[in-house]
Measured scan of single mutants.
Amino acid sequence: AIERGSKVKILRKESYWYGDVGTVASIDKSGIIYPVIVRFNKVNYNGFSGSAGGLNTNNFAEHELEVV
């Protein structure tokens, strides 16, 4: 089962992080479509409006993740 702290591989082909491994930061139990927040070591794009980097978290559905 996917739980907080799990290392997961991203299976969503259109994702910037496809094939990468991230760490589960949290799981939303409220029934939303993409409840699993995954944190990565790298950012997906340069930040804007003065922020240092881009996003390094993204929401995924459990079926888009594979525990490694």
Rank of each mutant, 00 (worst) to 15 (best):
L11V: 06
L65E: 00
S6P: 03
L11A: 03
G19P: 01
F60T: 00
L11K: 06
G50K: 05
V38N: 00
E3M: 13
S15H: 03
T23Y: 09
K29Y: 12
K29V: 13
I27P: 01
G22K: 01
A25G: 04
K9H: 04
I33L: 13
V68T: 06
E66G: 04
K13H: 07
A1F: 07
S26W: 11
K13E: 10
V43G: 11
K7G: 02
E64H: 02
I32P: 09
N58H: 13
T23Q: 05
R12G: 02
S30C: 12
G50H: 10
R39A: 09
I37Q: 13
S30P: 06
G19Q: 08
A1N: 09
N56F: 10
Y18D: 00
I32R: 07
R39F: 14
V43K: 08
E3P: 06
I27Y: 08
G53F: 04
A61P: 02
E66S: 05
L65A: 00
N59H: 08
S6Q: 12
I32S: 13
G31K: 09
G22S: 03
A1T: 12
Y45G: 15
E66D: 04
D28Y: 04
P35I: 14
V36E: 00
S51L: 09
L65T: 01
S49M: 15
G5E: 03
I33V: 11
V36N: 00
D20P: 01
I10P: 01
K7A: 06
N58W: 13
T23W: 10
Y16A: 05
G50N: 08
K13V: 12
D28K: 05
R4G: 06
I10N: 02
G53D: 14
A25W: 08
G54Q: 07
I10C: 10
I27F: 08
A25L: 14
V68E: 05
A25M: 14
N56A: 08
I32C: 14
A25P: 01
V67Q: 05
K7R: 09
P35F: 14
G22W: 05
W17K: 00
H63I: 07
V36W: 02
H63Y: 10
Y16M: 06
A61K: 05
V21C: 11
D20F: 12
S6E: 04
R39Q: 13
A25H: 07
T57D: 07
F40A: 03
I37S: 10
N44W: 15
I32H: 10
Y16E: 08
H63A: 07
V38T: 00
G5Y: 03
E3T: 11
T57M: 12
R39D: 09
L55V: 14
Y34M: 11
D20V: 12
E62P: 10
F48W: 04
K42Y: 05
S49E: 15
E14N: 11
F40M: 04
V21E: 04
K13R: 10
K13M: 07
E62R: 08
R12D: 05
E3Y: 07
N58M: 14
V36Q: 00
Y16P: 07
V24Q: 01
N56V: 12
V8L: 00
V21T: 07
I33T: 10
K13Y: 10
S15E: 03
E3W: 05
S49D: 15
V21R: 02
P35Y: 13
G47E: 15
S30D: 07
G31T: 09
W17D: 00
N56I: 11
R4W: 07
N44A: 07
S30R: 08
G22I: 13
I33H: 10
G5V: 02
E3I: 10
V24F: 01
F48A: 15
S26N: 10
I2C: 14
E64W: 04
I27T: 03
Y18I: 02
E62K: 08
N59Q: 06
G50L: 03
V36H: 00
Y16F: 14
S15N: 04
H63C: 14
I10A: 01
Y16D: 06
S49T: 13
V68I: 11
E62I: 12
S26Q: 10
V8G: 01
Y18V: 03
K29H: 11
F40K: 03
I27K: 02
T23R: 04
E14M: 06
R39K: 12
Y16R: 03
H63W: 13
V8Q: 01
R12P: 03
T57P: 04
V67T: 05
G50Y: 04
L11N: 04
E66I: 07
R4C: 15
R4M: 13
V36K: 00
A52N: 12
N59L: 05
E14T: 09
Y45N: 15
K7S: 08
R12F: 06
Y16L: 05
I27A: 01
S51A: 10
E14I: 05
L55W: 09
I37L: 14
S51M: 11
G54E: 09
G47L: 02
F40Q: 03
N58V: 10
A1M: 12
R39H: 09
